[in-house]
């Protein structure tokens, strides 16, 4: 038996609905036979009547409703059809859910699922990676699972957390990533994982870029370089200690992310390493992000807009030569 990343998300939601009566799923086109734009909830509405609910095209009100339900003791999961559309709900996620615990001492346990990242032909409004934007504000946990196992366990963890969680699931990984089985145990929330040990350069990344980084590490191994790849798993909180420990071993740092280049997760990683571990570095750190334009539609443009194996490998070689 094999399980895809998407199936892991569906299985996690099935388990949550089965085992926790406080859980319900709220989103556009997720109920009925249709089961969601990506089928992440297929079959769940029939299995759990009244707990997988279609909403109007009202991202703001979807999150507002989830906040109210959470305050009343429920554990809602909201599916945004695409991460990009969550821009409509920024106010509810960041100004309402994100401030609520600090203001009132009452936390808001909502989980917002964001189908994120680029796939071919999706264009400017169905491809965005918004983890950096959400992380900038206080009050929310931001998860970016890169593996089938993490997609499963981190979604279960997200619902158990008493605070708002933005769960960024990568659309490219939905069907491309497979595991043999669902995991029995989870890696702690908020901890980064070293997915490939090395000694010459640390690549810190998350979500789909973990797999690009691993491919680059394999390629550079043929030239005698040993690249360590760190998967952040959650970008907020950021596991600075694991990153610093890795840079202490390698002396070199490349941060890779699929989001836009101004600020964001990669800038934060470099900022933390240079301010907290400057003496660990043997070469200037570098980062690669998407380009500072909207995400283009055509595959020729799209594949050059985002970081890819070639651009990551080129930058990695530059740092290694310093």
């Amino acid at each position: 038996m094999s399980v895809t990343y998407l199936e892991a998300i569906r299985e996690a939601q099935t388990k949550l609905l089965r085992e926790d009566e406080r859980v319900f799923i709220y989103g556009q086109d997720i109920a009925g036979k249709f089961g969601g734009a990506f089928k992440a909830t297929k079959g769940l509405a029939e299995k759990f009547p009244g707990r997988v609910l279609n909403t109007p095209i009202s991202e703001d009100a979807m999150i507002g409703t989830a906040i109210g339900a959470a305050l009343e003791g429920m554990r809602p999961i909201v599916e945004m059809q695409f991460a990009d559309f969550s821009s409509i709900a920024l106010n509810q996620i960041l100004n309402n859910a994100g401030t609520h615990y600090y203001r009132t001492n009452v936390p808001v346990p909502i989980t917002v699922r964001l189908p994120s990242g680029g796939t071919k032909g999706s264009g400017p409004f169905h491809s965005q990676s918004m983890e950096g934007l959400y992380s900038h504000y206080p009050g929310v946990v931001v998860m970016t699972p890169a593996t089938v196992e993490d997609a499963y366990t981190m979604l279960i963890d997200a619902v158990a957390i008493d605070d708002p969680v933005v769960y960024c699931e990568h659309k490219y990984l939905y069907y491309h990533l497979k595991a043999d089985a669902l995991p029995k145990e989870s890696f702690p929330v908020g901890k980064a994982r070293i997915v490939r040990p090395g000694r010459d350069l640390t690549i810190v990344t998350y979500s789909a870029m973990v797999h690009e980084a691993l491919a680059v590490a394999g390629e550079l191994q043929r030239d005698g370089f040993e690249i360590e790849v760190v998967d952040l798993r959650t970008v907020k909180p950021l596991d600075t200690q694991t990153v610093l420990a890795s840079v202490a071993r390698t002396g070199r740092l490349l941060a890779v992310g699929e989001a836009f280049p101004w600020g964001g997760v990669t800038a934060e990683v470099i900022s933390r390493v240079t301010t907290e571990g400057f003496q660990l570095l043997d070469a200037a750190p570098a980062r690669i992000n998407a380009k500072d334009t909207p995400i283009p539609y055509h595959p020729n443009l799209w594949s050059e807009h985002r970081p890819n194996r070639k651009s990551i490998a080129t930058k990695a070689r530059q740092i290694l030569q310093e």
Binding site: D60, G64, T65, L71, E72
Partner: peptide, 20 residues
């Protein structure tokens, strides 16, 4: 919160959950 209209769906969620 200061953003007008934001509390209407929060109220909806409270009521929906009470019904659930």
């Amino acid at each position: 919160i200061s953003h007008l209209g934001a509390m209407i769906p929060v109220m909806v969620g409270k009521l929906l959950a009470k019904r659930m």
